[in-house]
Design a binder for these strands. Sequence first.
DNA 1: AGCCGTGCTGTTAGCGATAACAGACAAAAG
DNA 2: CTTTTGTCTGTTATCGCTAACAGCACGGCT
Lengths: 329, 329
Amino acid sequence: MSDVAELAGFSHQTVSRVLSGHPNVRPHTRARVMAAIQELGYRPNLAARALATGRTQTLGVVCLNSTLYGPASMLYAIEEAAQAAGYWVTTASIRAFDRTSLRKAIARLVDQKVDGIVVIAPLASAREVLDELPGDIPVVTVEGDSERSEALVRVDQVLGARLATEHLLAAGHKTVWHVAGPPEWLDAQGRVAGWRAALEAVGAEVVAPLTGDWSAESGYKAGQLLARIGELSAVFVANDPMALGVLRALHERGRRVPEDVSVVGFDDIPESAYYTPPLTTVRQNFDEVGLKSLQLLLDRIAGRVDGSRDVVVAPELVVRQSTAAPRSD
Amino acid sequence: MSDVAELAGFSHQTVSRVLSGHPNVRPHTRARVMAAIQELGYRPNLAARALATGRTQTLGVVCLNSTLYGPASMLYAIEEAAQAAGYWVTTASIRAFDRTSLRKAIARLVDQKVDGIVVIAPLASAREVLDELPGDIPVVTVEGDSERSEALVRVDQVLGARLATEHLLAAGHKTVWHVAGPPEWLDAQGRVAGWRAALEAVGAEVVAPLTGDWSAESGYKAGQLLARIGELSAVFVANDPMALGVLRALHERGRRVPEDVSVVGFDDIPESAYYTPPLTTVRQNFDEVGLKSLQLLLDRIAGRVDGSRDVVVAPELVVRQSTAAPRSD
DNA sequence: AGCCGTGCTGTTAGCGATAACAGACAAAAG
DNA sequence: CTTTTGTCTGTTATCGCTAACAGCACGGCT
């Protein structure tokens, strides 16, 4: 930086002012400095700036399993929007569900002095950990606990599950079975709640849900069980890959979809329109969730805390060919 | 830090030595300092350390489209391994194929003074950009150009495509059609080359490949075209989601798989075992690629350049139910 | 006894930027 | 013509840490 100053014939402080867009710099001076920067190929040292200002222009994202479609999409949307806003993104992936690794991940980000954190860790246990956070760092939670005082962006899982279940009930099915996600996941819990609520609203029987781990394999296993149940006519599966597994298992047992059994998924991943048959599912707009959470975070960093504290994104039912009326016999 | 020093009764430099694990510190002193750190809840300032040492303990990853299964898996594997090695990971996602955004992404990482970079951008154009890189920063390329002098980790795409094609030829198919990935992608190019080589080796006809964009939708469109071709008996599709689209299109036109047409995919994503029918495909071990590339990068950071410059991971054919012998008529 | 090497700790000087204050000069106000 | 105000630039201190050097005590050697 002092090289630039010398070449331009000004002090390093003036160079700093040019860089930070300070108004009180003569246009002529600014031009000279810019030329010197160009000529020397100077790039400011971000570590030094971080040390001096206390800000890093970096955001942290804590993410539970970034190979799943949902988290990966949100991560991508956040990264891109952050980039556009002049921020960096550091990710802290965690594999396990436990509190310790979540705590460690957040500690890492705090150590790195990130300017804000997005937590994509829709686990019941996340709540306690977030309560331990230093209060001076803005945090936005995605799919978190709505009782937390911090900002939150979420998809209305309960609504989505109700849309799915009501769609099946409206087609004439007496009741709807459910393959749920891991019980620790808040969105899995929400989908169970919505499914249950829809059934109870019309007095339909509520059969205990099966549980998977979001993978197609776990859906397949649940499907093998379901396929043996004669009275089965409609299933709501908590995500699309598991629904794929269910479709496969039903097919292998000779239960036709949708003639014998109707299936609804959740997420609307790009592949689900090409399953056999194309899957009726509930669309979550992950890009929007990622974008909104970033906006909220930037607002908080800028001190605009007054704005909306919670953002709820509405899911949407996408009807395809895996659902139909039950057989009349 | 000086607070800790004062509380422990030593100088700040001794605290620094304890933190960095310097050998010449009396155990008693070390214990006192540690206790003081504990008591004050002291956490070192990484920006200051970065400024003083010139190292950041951060790695950069440039990633082309992190919502695809392959890149997402590698990213995840890298992130986790880096974490275990005490490094942070900053991602720079790019959406477009062009040189400018790649250049910008790398510039961002260099500005941030990352200690090393992994480039997951299997594009032909990546090569030129990488040549512009400052020579003092270690770089590992994934799926890059093997003629580059830098370190490289890749899956043998040509071999994988040959395995797939030869499997179909061995089953008795006269020739194999191909749905390729975007031509700018090096792995798409490699798969075309392997497919072509396998056909030419036995003197089979080489029909010009169709092109998709890795999505199920593009595979579906290619499949609609293929389904009209009467003589079609075997297709090799450049990735699993596109293969799903092809399966769907064939099914809609009444072409049975594998009785009428055999289909082979590429990647072995977790869902492909549950497609209708379960997909014969070529497995790439993304975790291994991610891990190996990180190891290579850490080696280079540590100055161990002597070791293997290139790592080639062998893909593996996974035979499921989407392939069979051609119809005898 | 004197010297030297070794183990431990403290002092000083940066790393490369920004913040706060100070000074010079020109234009506007009294 | 002096005073004030405002625009522009420079000087100095500081962020929190590590590197290099210096110093001190101690034991073994000649």
